[in-house]
Amino acid sequence: MHPEISLILLLVLSGIGQGIFIILALIDMILSASSGMSDATIYAGTIASLAFISTGMAASIFHLGNPQRGWKAIIKWNRSWLSREAVSIGLFAGSAFLYLTVHYLGMSVSLKILFGLAGIVSAFLLYISSSMLYAKIRFIREWSNIYTVLNFIVFGITGGGAVLYAIVNILQPDFPYISMLNSVLIALGLLSLILKLFAYRFNETFYMPLTLKHALFINDRNIKLMSTGTSYDNYNTIEYSYPLSERQIIMQQTVVIVFAFVIPILLWLAASKGVFATALSVVAAISMTAGLLLERRLFFVQGNHIQNLYYSNFRRNKGTNPLLSKAKKGTPVPL
């Protein structure tokens, strides 16, 4: 699929914004009694979260053909995941803003906990709806799998944690639970790394039985596209595919793995020693954000729509028929 910069920014930045809020609200609610975070950290964290989510929302406007009636996207919330995404992004931004307001005005703790919980719940709803939006398109197998949902949630929380860790390191280096935050981040980073490797492995090996033969319903092995009917590209060749060779994809996958996961994890490990922790955490957050932007871009590029069969743009992966591979080992093939 064509990687649209506005969608990439929306997904990555709002994901990080949600992640910041989830971790911040959890820490603040659990440790509020034991003098956890300073006010400055809470303000900076919540404002950063709101800034990320509003940048994402602003970017998403450029994706729409008619943004002036974009509010109509909430109408079919009972049917469309995109609509649910629009509803939950509003709920999340509202809850985060109210959380900040309640904290600023010093209102009762129960009210703050209410908005904190509402923010966390709506952040998870937003993760789920914005990933289900992609996972529900069953004609793009690279998207339509469990890794899409898991990756959106885990990468978002990890990215948010990376930014929050940098904020805490800058504003409150003596935060009592900073080493705990560090170890949680390293664990989340490792989990993300494993999930991403599994997702790339899945993209390589799932079995896709459909070919041009099936698409045209003509029983012949040799079918060649002679003419697309147009002298230049059309919407179908622009929107559904992106020219990137297999080598380039593997190279970019490596860059993603290194920048989004390996470098941040190593930097966090180094920061846990306490030397240059501020600088290291900032570099880790920047590296992770950049890596996640490339990761989401690659997510779009790798999405391979069935429609591409008609235009011979369909990328074949190396997957083999599971029935045939079973048969080779000598087990009977179920009919």
Partner: peptide, 27 residues
């Protein structure tokens, strides 16, 4: 009049028969 031009329907179509009008911003 209701289409916001999000292109989601064209992704959901397996045949690629919906086309986005880049000028008017609707499907």
């Amino acid at each position: 009049k209701d289409c916001i031009g999000c292109k989601y329907c064209s992704w959901a179509c397996p045949y690629g028969t919906r086309e986005f009008d880049f000028h008017e911003g609707v499907m």
